[in-house]
Design a protein around this nucleic acid. Structure first.
Lengths: 205, 205
DNA sequence: CCATCGATGACACATTGAGTCAAATACGTC
DNA sequence: GACGTATTTGACTCAATGTGTCATCGATGG
């Protein structure tokens, strides 16, 4: 009868195992390199079988990319929560700061994971594919905020894409600088340069 | 002694086989779906073995993505060739039109391949990773054009990224419209909206 | 105590990507 | 036209991956 609590516990346990797997994976991958690490090693590091690993992650790439899924959901939630009269550029900047703040609360891990993503082609590919989903979701939110029709107007998608370009560029720079410059500041600079493109007017083309 | 001509011929033959493989691959992939098609089928369709396929492409994904490599090289060459005093936005637009013009010279194939790329997550991932390489190369060219230091200034990378965002967004829209609206025109519209962000000034931050 | 359900592991299977080596094919030279 | 050489190809092999299936184990609830 305790359907809800039971499901909660079960789900929490799943997330626990998932977290353990991810933790061990990042350690091993950053240590031995991505291609040189097998799924069996990751699974064994947590005392699980490869089959069980597959039940939590589709692939090695997804382990790394998945660590951004929680933050990305919070980022979209933040974008949704921004005041409706806020300019898109400001709302987008605030939303993305949800992610960039990870570099403050957990600098070492964030840097390691970011480096792993940006320097491993296979992981980068998956990550960018994930980013394109963020973009789609952000575009929908922006369209809703502005009352534009996302199927008729490219501006919401463009604004989301441009904002994510700023994020990517700042992140790349941050990693190239070994985290010595604040990620927030780098993304701020990037945003300042592309803000003109984020001003979705309401006048039709 | 005819070292150069021989190498030329050999290379041309390689490109021929590569083209055959790519052609058969796109046909099969678009026909049966990506996941449902095996490399063996593609190789067999050209009368070659799977091992030989691996010598031409690293993976199924790369077959599709590779079809953009020629155009992308020409696009970068065009960007390099644009007059130095041309505004970045104009130069980028002209460069990208090298690619968008494919939708005019070969509409059906371009549409099929584009749909395959955008609708297949695994292919999209590889494609986006490839785009990020284009971005890096374009950023280098832009930095050279403007005399900016690409390691110190994010603007070249941002401009390239923003231009590619416009391209992606226009391409997505073009595919969603089943090619009924001109890709060139869609990318033009996208460019018009983000052009403000492409004006790399020379004043340091 | 037992029934049930979810998680796990063992096994099997298809697919992929790559290393190795022999055969074949094309090329230039004689 | 014949020969030697270099490249290309195919057969075989292997490690790794992702997935389907099924039995087992443990926890939960009756």
């Amino acid at each position: 009868m305790n359907a809800a609590p039971t499901a909660d516990i079960a789900e929490r346990k799943r997330q626990l195992v998932r977290g353990e797997l991810a933790e061990a994976a990042v350690t091993l991958l950053a240590d031995q390199g991505f291609e040189e690490t097998t799924v069996d090693q990751i699974a064994a590091a947590v005392g699980l079988s490869r089959r069980t690993f597959s039940r939590y992650f589709q692939s090695k790439e997804d382990v790394v990319v998945h660590m951004m899924s929680g933050p990305s959901a919070r980022m979209c939630a933040e974008l949704r929560a921004r005041p409706a009269d806020e300019p898109p550029a400001v709302a987008l900047r605030h939303a993305l700061s949800v992610i960039t703040s990870l570099s403050v609360t957990n600098p070492d891990k964030t840097l390691h994971v970011s480096r792993l993503i940006l320097d491993t082609p296979a992981v980068l590919a998956r990550f960018l594919e994930r980013l394109s989903r963020w973009q789609a979701e952000m575009a929908g939110i922006l369209a809703h905020r502005t009352g534009l029709d996302p199927d008729a107007d490219m501006r919401p998608a463009l604004a989301a894409g441009v904002a994510l370009t700023a994020f990517q560029t700042g992140l790349r720079r941050w990693v190239d600088r070994d985290g010595t410059e604040a990620l927030d500041e780098l993304v701020n600079q990037a945003f300042a340069m592309i803000t003109p493109a984020l001003d979705l007017g309401t006048a039709p083309s």
